[in-house]
Each structure stands twice: as structure tokens, then as C-alpha cells.
Amino acid sequence: MNQREIEEILELIWTLREEKISERKMVHDITQEKEPEKILNSMRENDLVRFSNGDVFLTENGEKYAEKIIRRHRLAERLFKDVFKMDDSGFEREACTWEHVLSEEATDSVCAFLGHPRVCPHNKPIPRGECCNKYEKTVSPLVHPMSEIGVGRSVKIVYILPSLQKRLERLTNLGIIPGNVIRIKQKHPAMVVVCDQTTIALDKEVASEIYVIAVNDKKS
């Protein structure tokens, strides 16, 4: 029984739970591990899961363990997708590897680098780590929400995490799209940004969902 197999099963139980599924049979059906029953039993022995009436649940220990894996997996997805621009199957594959190897310290650095994102590219929540709670500003992330950028700075859009689909479409139609460079012209009473030759005014609330990275620090 190696650690990787256990972690895969933990991850599966967690994601199934997000879909409100807890049947043991489902774990068997979906997993790609060869001997799921054996792994599950050993996990029970190690106090990671418990069984009840054909269902499987995480124990307190299992919960903590799974949370870390999910966090690493989803942060890795963001990293490979948004920053390294990997395609859909690529970042998925990469994340599956990295979830087993990232140290806690490295995970927090990635999290800070990405600006403590809250959801993965599939829009599922990323469990928050200590770094998120401790405080974002002490670790100075490289990727910031646009609403936190000072006036006069030019930034490149890295990703947009809209809570509404319509918002994303409206932004993209105006040219606010990952990869484009914009300049922050004004922040009050609402954000004003210049994208190419178009000046766009938008709510702070919307701006806080646009994540950007500085391209130069020239104050104008």
C-alpha cells in the first residue's frame, strides 16, 4: 500500500462528497486504483476513513489529510493553467502529479503567488491554508486582484474569476481578457481602466474578480 494510492482514494472521497455521494460502491466504480477494497481497509486501520452501511466517510485525520491534497491539487491546476497556459488535459495531468509531491511550504508559496485564489479552474472551492488566513499582504503575492492595484500602474490580466457568467462575457467583449495589458486610470468613485484605446469604467466588485500581474512599475 503506498502513499500515492491512499492519497488518490482520499481525494476521490472528498470530491464525491462535494457531489453529495458517499457510497463505497461508487469509490470502487470510479477509482483507477487496482485494489480499492484493500486500500480502503488499510485506510480504516490507519484511522483515515470509517465505514457505515455501505457508505464511507472521512475521519478527522482523514479530513485533514484530504484537505491538504485537494488544496495542492487545485492550486496546482490554477498554476499550470493560468500562469503556464497549459491546455485542459495538460494542467489536469500535471496537477495529479504535483498533489503528491508539493511540500507544505511550497504549497503556501504557490498560493501566495496566485493571490490566494478561492476556486479551482473547475470552479470548485480550494481549501484555505494557513497562509490565506495568516494574511495575504505579509507574503506579497505576485498576482493581485485588479482592485488592489494603484492608479497609473500597467498590469497584465492573468485570469478572471467571475461569479457571474454574464460578467465574463461582457468583459471579454470589451477586450478585458487574459493576456491583455491594461492601465489603471482611476479608482474612485469607480474603477476606470484603459485597455488599448478603450476606456472602461467598472464596479470595484467586478474589478476584484480580475487577477492581474504587474508589467512595469512606471508611475505616470
Binding site: 460578467r167 461582457r170 478603450t198 476606456t199 472602461i200 469604467a201 467598472l202 464596479d203 466588485e205
Partner: peptide
């Protein structure tokens, strides 16, 4: 309600 996203003409 809807978002405030408005283009400012020159």
C-alpha cells in the same frame, strides 16, 4: 441588479 461596466468615449 446588473454590473456597472461602461465604456467611456473620449
Amino acid at each position: 441588479k446588473s454590473d456597472f461596466i461602461l465604456e467611456l468615449p473620449p
